[in-house]
């Protein structure tokens, strides 16, 4: 099965991904106000849908978000990051 690979735009943010039991956790640190604002919009997008536990956002200090993502929402989350132009590229490898 192919794996989804992505590359962040390094001037906008840093992103760490790790597995936590079934979930996938991301620690995303915005490097400027514009990127942080985009992450806010992404958060609003996932919080305004009717599913509460698909992608959960937790704000920490210094423009950092921790994101807990259900396995079935992993691809949608990556694609939304891409849609908001926080990722350079996304591909199946």
């Amino acid at each position: 099965m192919k794996k989804l690979c992505y590359e962040v735009i390094h001037s906008l943010m840093t992103l760490e991904e790790k597995k936590n039991n079934k979930d996938i956790e991301f620690t995303i640190k915005a490097k400027n106000g514009e990127a942080f604002e985009l992450l806010h919009k992404i958060r609003n997008f996932f919080e305004s849908d009717k599913i509460y536990t698909d992608v959960l956002f937790y704000t920490q200090k210094e423009q950092t978000y921790q994101v807990i993502c259900r396995p079935d929402s992993y691809v949608p989350f990556i694609l939304v990051l891409f849609q908001y132009q926080l990722l350079e590229r996304v591909e199946w490898v």
């Binding site: 936590n20 039991n21 919080e47 509460y52 959960l56 937790y58 807990i68």
Partner: peptide, 13 residues
Amino acid sequence: MVPVTFSITRRLG
């Protein structure tokens, strides 16, 4: 309350 409950409990695992 339910959304924030899901959020906090997931964070606590």
